[in-house]
Computed example of a mutant assay.
Amino acid sequence: MRRTVILVEGESDRAALHAAAARRGEEPPARIEVLHGITNLAKALAAHAGDRVVVLFDGDERARVARAIERAPTTPIAAIACERDLEDELIRALGADGVLAVIAAEGDLPAWRALRGQPFHRGRPVDEVLHRFMGSIGGRKLRYARALVEALRPGAIPRPLVDALAAAR
């Protein structure tokens, strides 16, 4: 029996897909497998030979994904790239003010202000510092993936998440 699986780079990607499905009033995909890094894609594609596979990945990994697909025994039904990465997609979709409202709701404004006050980050674009903030402490990407998606209107969910869910249906 052919199963459908979405392969994602990290746990935060899986959390965002589940939250996006819920936000859109859809059932989450039955199977989302975390690769723990795109370098494991070739092995995962081999393990899913014969399955319907969707790959969601960071834009700067296009060449690596293409090489893995070339060597794979099966071709994914969709390989969907985020422009930069999922955090960037979510920050753009919600806007800096929206992300800061989520950070406030999560009780992380003191940590945000501390990062923003560091000499390197003074004067840098807010969206760049927000991107750094998401990855600055272990577990923060995972925590915020769900919170940022839940703060979005259903029609504002980033295209890569929508496309991955649609391809898996």
Rank of each mutant, 00 (worst) to 15 (best):
R67L: 12
R67M: 06
A68N: 04
A68Y: 12
I69G: 02
I69W: 12
I69L: 05
E70Y: 02
E70K: 11
E70A: 13
E70F: 01
R71I: 00
A72I: 12
A72G: 05
A72P: 01
A72E: 06
P73L: 06
P73I: 07
P73F: 07
P73A: 13
T74F: 02
T75Q: 12
T75D: 01
P76N: 01
P76W: 10
P76A: 12
P76R: 07
P76H: 13
I77S: 14
A78Q: 04
A78H: 09
A78R: 15
A78E: 13
A79G: 12
A79V: 01
A79M: 10
I80Q: 04
A81C: 08
A81G: 08
A81Y: 12
C82G: 06
C82V: 00
C82R: 07
E83R: 15
E83M: 08
R84F: 12
R84N: 04
D85H: 10
D85A: 14
L86V: 00
E87N: 06
E87L: 03
E87Q: 06
D88T: 03
D88N: 13
D88F: 04
L90W: 03
L90H: 03
I91N: 03
I91L: 06
R92Y: 05
R92V: 09
R92K: 14
A93W: 09
A93Y: 07
A93M: 07
A93L: 08
L94H: 04
L94F: 00
G95A: 12
G95D: 08
G95H: 10
G95I: 10
A96Q: 01
A96L: 00
D97E: 14
D97V: 11
G98D: 06
G98I: 10
G98H: 13
G98T: 13
G98V: 08
V99W: 03
V99K: 11
V99D: 02
L100P: 03
L100N: 07
L100A: 14
L100R: 13
A101C: 09
A101W: 12
V102W: 10
V102I: 10
V102Y: 02
A104Y: 00
A104G: 10
A104L: 04
A104F: 00
A105Q: 14
A105I: 03
E106L: 14
E106T: 11
E106H: 14
G107C: 06
G107V: 07
D108H: 15
